[in-house]
């Protein structure tokens, strides 16, 4: 464990608390893509089905990510259902899941169910944010709290990049699947980060140019 990874994980943790805070305080899941949240459940379940013990930290985090992502789906689907507008959450997830299944079958470290699911989850995580970003693009604006959620989530994978560089030099290990997918995942946030830093951090509302 190094500081980059620790702060990456903490940022991931923070993003979930920010999202929950947003839903609770506004009593609404407006502006949040149900599809993206559902994809995260698929990501965590397919990745953490590998019960190999690593550490207490690792186990607790895994349980938290599975539990919280399912809880968020419950909030969106049941508790605050009327506040979710499916007509703007229109990204076709089959275009993400299909290719990720294929990529998982082709690129994996061992052709076993657990390993293919692990690869699939890595690929799917890298694109799971797309329905959310697509929704943002469609509406052209976002509540500030929602942009903080996205920034924390983007920072999580961005921090994993220096973590991999650090691990390469200290342990001599590289995980090509995780690194490739991680770079793609971080890349998808670049546009968002640009607007976040130039507008939201300056106290302005998140609005995309028309």
């Amino acid at each position: 464990m190094n500081l980059f990874r620790l702060f990456g994980d903490l940022s991931h943790l923070a993003s979930i608390f920010i999202l929950l805070h947003k839903i609770y305080t506004t009593r609404s899941c407006r502006g949040i893509s149900f599809k993206t949240q559902a994809l995260y459940v698929a990501v965590f379940v397919s990745r953490y089905i590998d019960f190999t013990y690593i550490s207490v930290y690792n186990t607790l985090m895994k349980l938290f990510f599975i539990g919280s992502s399912c809880y968020i789906l419950y909030l969106m689907r049941i508790k605050y259902r009327p506040t979710h507008d499916p007509s703007i959450d229109t990204f076709r997830v089959e275009y993400l899941v299909g290719p990720c299944v294929l990529l998982g079958l082709i690129f994996n470290y061992q052709f076993t169910v657990i390993e293919v699911l692990w690869s699939f989850s890595i690929f799917l995580e890298s694109v799971a944010i797309l329905p959310q970003l697509f929704m943002l693009q469609r509406t052209g604006e976002a509540e500030t709290i929602t942009t903080h959620y996205l920034a924390a989530l983007g920072a999580y994978r961005a921090l994993y990049i220096p973590n991999w560089i650090y691990r390469y030099f200290t342990e001599g290990t590289v995980d090509p699947i995780a690194v490739t997918a991680g770079l793609v995942q971080t890349g998808l946030y670049l546009d968002f980060f640009y607007v976040y830093f130039t507008k939201v951090m300056q106290g302005q509302k998140f609005e995309l140019p028309a």
Binding site: R5, D9, H12, D50, T52, I54, S55, N58, M61, K62, F65, Y109, Q110, E115, W118, Y160, N163, T173, V174, D175, I177, A178
Partner: peptide, 10 residues
Amino acid sequence: DTAAKGKDEL
């Protein structure tokens, strides 16, 4: 053991 790579990450 290549299969173990990255598996300690979340």
